[in-house]
């Protein structure tokens, strides 16, 4: 119990540290540059407390339940030798972790509000929800696919730069034909997808795989999964935008 409490406190400290720079910068600008009292400061403080508390519970829970099981699974599949199961697992890992990614949930919701006010989708709660979910599942599918490609790359030993450069070319070509209102959110979706849940689990898979295969360097081959996971969502979100319009 005592040990658990220390772990919890560590998580609390970590989320405070995440938030501290933001609070300092905003406070400095509010009081030194704008020189005005902060509007509805009470609401904001309650919200910030919720963010710290939420992030703490979230990370604590992840470290207690999800990470150990995810990591042991990733290593088990990396060593098992069956490529088809490994790829299935890789896809599911990318998909499942992205669907639950907090910042993606938040940004997709915001994107739906903007799209509704811009007249792209009907201005009802229902169509907003379906747009936000569509966006999330598109991104999750793209990340799943990215992890599959990344795992194949590690197994086959393909050099990363050609794949990434090829991806860039596809992104540029897609930009020409995609509707202009999806481009911003599509480019953003690459950075949004990879945070709290996805990065540790996916890195565990990559490094586990690279150390299980002979002749692979965990440094060179273990990294790079995240790079794919930030590239493919751009392409797929643009496709999603084309389908919707």
């Amino acid at each position: 119990m005592n040990h658990q409490f220390i772990v919890f406190l560590k998580a609390l400290l970590g989320s405070c540290k995440d938030l501290l720079p933001i609070i300092l910068v905003i406070a400095f600008f509010q009081f030194a540059v704008l020189q005005q009292p902060m509007p509805n400061v009470g609401d904001i403080l309650v919200g910030l407390a919720l963010v710290v508390l939420g992030l703490t519970f979230f990370i604590y829970g992840l470290e207690m339940g999800l990470f150990p099981i995810g990591e042991s699974m990733a290593q088990a599949f990396a060593k098992k030798g069956s490529i088809s199961w490994l790829l299935t697992f890789a896809f599911c890992l990318g998909f499942g972790t992205t669907v639950a990614e907090p910042s993606l949930i938040a940004v997709a919701k915001e994107a739906a509000v903007v799209a509704a006010s811009g007249g792209i989708i009907a201005d009802t709660l229902e169509s907003q929800l379906s747009y936000a979910n569509g966006l999330r599942f598109t991104v999750a599918f793209a990340v799943g696919l990215a992890i599959v490609i990344g795992v194949l790359r590690i197994i086959r030993g393909w050099p990363i730069q050609y794949l990434i450069l090829g991806g860039y070319v596809v992104v540029v070509l897609m930009t020409i034909i995609a509707p202009s209102w999806i481009i911003g959110i599509a480019y953003d979706s690459g950075g949004v997808t990879t945070s709290t849940i996805t990065v540790p689990l996916v890195t565990a898979l990559g490094v586990g795989l690279a150390s299980a295969i002979k002749g692979r360097n965990p440094m060179i081959d273990g990294f790079g999964l995240i790079a794919f996971a930030s590239l493919t969502p751009m392409i797929f979100v643009m496709i999603y935008g084309m389908v919707i319009s």
Binding site: I22, I26, N40, D43, I44, L45, V46, G47, L48, A49, L50, V51, V52, L53, G54, L55, T56, F57, F58, I59, Y60, G61, L62, E63, M64, G65, L66, P68, I69, A100, P102, I105, A106, E110
Partner: peptide, 28 residues
């Protein structure tokens, strides 16, 4: 048992975080 509890914490944490996001980070 540990995994189950971890999952419940994840749920509570995520809900609190998203609520706080809407109350604080987006408005800020």
């Amino acid at each position: 048992k540990q995994v189950g509890f971890g999952f419940i914490y994840v749920l509570i944490g995520l809900a609190l975080f998203l609520l706080g996001l809407e109350k604080a980070l987006f408005p800020l």
